[in-house]
Design a binder for these strands. Structure first.
Lengths: 148, 148
DNA sequence: ACAGTTGTAACTTAAATGGTTACAATAAAG
DNA sequence: CTTTATTGTAACCATTTAAGTTACAACTGT
């Protein structure tokens, strides 16, 4: 199974919040850019708020970054929206047979190996900043405009 | 969402095939160690067979490694059983709004970044050999026996 | 021919996902 | 204080994936 598109959408949301000139970026406005339902956006904004990445104004509306874009990594975003009770990327088999030497010990060997893989993935996620995405996107948009 | 436990089970299966002394390791035998239904094992064996990691005998039964355990990496096993039409670890948002500069270009920026993360994960998976798992497990079993 | 096993289809249950409607709580503006 | 727009959530739905199960035809060594 794949990692939820919430992650991809969350990157989109934060990038948009950084780049937009709109004074009050509401869930409806964001949903327009992502092309989905505003409630989907609010759900994800709720998770990003929980992680102290954004603040969301009730009543009058609008969402705003709480940190500078070069102080937000993809790992921060990933952890905020890829909810998983136990933080594990890999699902393990439920209940190997303890009466079999292999079944009784396989998880204690495999789990550390898979944890290391997950760690490598998170290390890579940590290397990419929201500012990097914003910078590359700005450049691409500028180039596109020039060409059209 | 997590990566299917098929991966964890597949590692278990191959480890067992390497370590067992049983002459005809059938799906029922393997299922006993994994503690699941033989059909589940056969399904995974089918994928491992497809990837040329094992051969499975019809009629009389039994599954056997086709490569030495130091020539099988966790990445080989991962690719064999984590079926995904498009090989992607991350699901991307479906259809961002092309009329918004951010929506129109975000995927072209985000996808390479996520591909790099996936690449890092697969590189790490490649570092672990089935032989490593087998060796560690053998050691642990020997220690456990000595203590009991 | 027999007995045991694989390959596979079909069904079930459970969980995660993304979308949708509805509405109370909220907060700024007049 | 009332109006107005927006957020936060609950509730529901449809889709997808997963893992388990039953059943049975196809296969193969004895």
């Amino acid at each position: 199974m794949k990692i939820s598109s919430r992650f991809s959408v969350a990157i989109h949301i934060l990038t948009l919040l950084k780049m937009t000139n709109v004074k009050v970026p509401t869930s409806a406005y964001i949903a327009g850019s992502v092309n989905t339902n505003p409630v989907v956006i609010r759900r994800i904004l709720g998770m990003l708020k929980e992680a102290n990445l954004v603040e969301v104004k009730r009543g009058n509306g609008g969402a705003y970054l709480l940190r500078s874009s070069d102080n937000i990594t993809l790992l921060d975003i990933y952890k905020a929206v890829v909810v998983d009770k136990d933080r594990d990327l890999f699902r393990k088999q439920a209940s190997p047979n303890n009466l079999c030497p292999v079944g009784a010990n396989i998880l204690s060997i495999v789990e550390p190996a898979l944890d290391a893989v997950q760690e490598a993935m998170e290390t890579e996620l940590k290397k990419v900043l929201l500012a990097d995405i914003v910078q590359q996107l700005s450049k691409k948009i500028a180039t596109t405009k020039k060409l059209s």
